[in-house]
Computed example of a mutant assay.
Amino acid sequence: MSVVRPGRSPERVVMFVDAVLAIAITLLAIELPRPPEDSKVPFGTFLAEHGGSFFAFVLAFLMLWWIWRTHHGTFDQVKDVSPLVMTLHIPLLLAAVWMPYPTEVFGAGEAGSLATALFAGTEGVMMLSLGLISEAVVRQGLYKEDADVPRLRVETVVNIAIGLYWVATAVLAFNLPDHSEFPVAYLWFGTPLIAYAAARIARRAQKGVTTPADA
C-alpha cells in the first residue's frame, strides 16, 4: 500500500484545480462587454456588434468545462500523485488563469492574427497538459485497482491530439498577415472530428498494451 505524501493527496489536488477553473470561468463572464448606461442602441444590436466576444466566451467556457470534467474523470481513478503529475499541473493551471485575457482580446477582434494565435495557443497548452497528466498517471501506475485504464489511455490520446490541433492553428494564425481574411477560428469546429479520430486510433492500439500492474 502506497503512502500518500502530505500535500499530494488526489482529493486536495482536485479541490485546488476546481477552485482555479471556477475562478477562470467566472472571470470569463466578468470580461463580457456591457452596454453603456446611456446607450440607446437596441440590446439585440449590441449583442450582434459584440458577437465575437460572446463567441470567444462560449468557446473558452466549453474548453474549460471539458478540462474540468476530464480532470475529474481521471482523478476519480487516481490513488497517488507523483512529482511529475504535480509539475504537469503548473502549465494547465497557469494557462487556465491566463485564459480570460486572450479570450477578451480575441473576442474584441482588435489584435488580429496575434490575438487568434494567443487564444488558440492557450487552449492548446491546457489540452496538452491535461493529456500529459493522464499519460503520467498510466505510465507511473498511479491509478486504483478498479480503474478503467483503457479509457484513461483513450482520453490521453484524445486530449493530446486536440492540444496539438489547437497549437497547430495557433502557429497558422501567427504566420498569417495581420487581419487576414483566412478564417482560422472556423478550423476549431473540427475539434470534435479530431477527438473522434483520435479515440478510434487509440482504441485500435489497445491490443497488446500492458499496464505497470500487469507487467
Rank of each mutant, 00 (worst) to 15 (best):
V105N: 05
A168E: 05
W68T: 01
L176I: 01
M127V: 07
V171P: 07
L172T: 01
R69A: 07
R139W: 11
L88F: 13
A147R: 04
T70Y: 09
W66Q: 14
A117R: 00
L128A: 04
L172G: 04
D148C: 14
H179T: 00
L164E: 08
G163R: 10
L172A: 02
M127C: 08
L142P: 03
S180D: 04
F106N: 04
L94C: 13
L93C: 06
Y143M: 11
P100Q: 13
N175D: 04
P102R: 02
W68I: 00
W65N: 08
S82D: 10
E123M: 14
I133Y: 08
W68K: 01
K144W: 14
M126K: 06
Q77E: 09
G112R: 00
V81Y: 08
F106R: 01
R69V: 02
A96P: 04
Q140I: 08
L93P: 03
H179M: 09
L132K: 15
P91T: 08
G73E: 05
L142S: 08
W166R: 03
M126I: 04
I160C: 03
S113C: 00
L84E: 11
L132Y: 15
L164T: 10
V138Q: 13
Q140P: 07
E145H: 13
D76T: 11
I133F: 09
L62W: 09
M63T: 03
A96V: 05
L114Y: 03
V105E: 06
E145L: 15
V171E: 01
T116Y: 03
F61Y: 13
M86H: 07
L88V: 08
G107E: 07
E104R: 02
L114M: 02
Q140L: 12
R139F: 12
M86A: 13
A173V: 02
W66R: 15
V157L: 09
L62K: 13
T70E: 14
L62I: 06
R151K: 15
H89F: 07
L88R: 14
I133L: 14
L94M: 15
N175Y: 02
R69P: 05
W65P: 00
D178H: 06
E104N: 10
L84C: 11
H72W: 03
A136T: 08
G73S: 10
D148P: 05
S180W: 00
V78G: 11
P91H: 13
R153F: 04
E135N: 12
T116F: 04
V105L: 14
P177M: 02
W68D: 00
Q77F: 04
L128C: 09
G131Q: 10
P102V: 00
P83I: 11
Y165H: 09
F174P: 05
E145G: 06
W66A: 15
V81Q: 11
G163F: 07
W166C: 02
H71P: 07
I133C: 11
I133E: 09
V137A: 11
R139Y: 13
T70H: 15
D178N: 12
A96W: 06
A60N: 12
L130T: 01
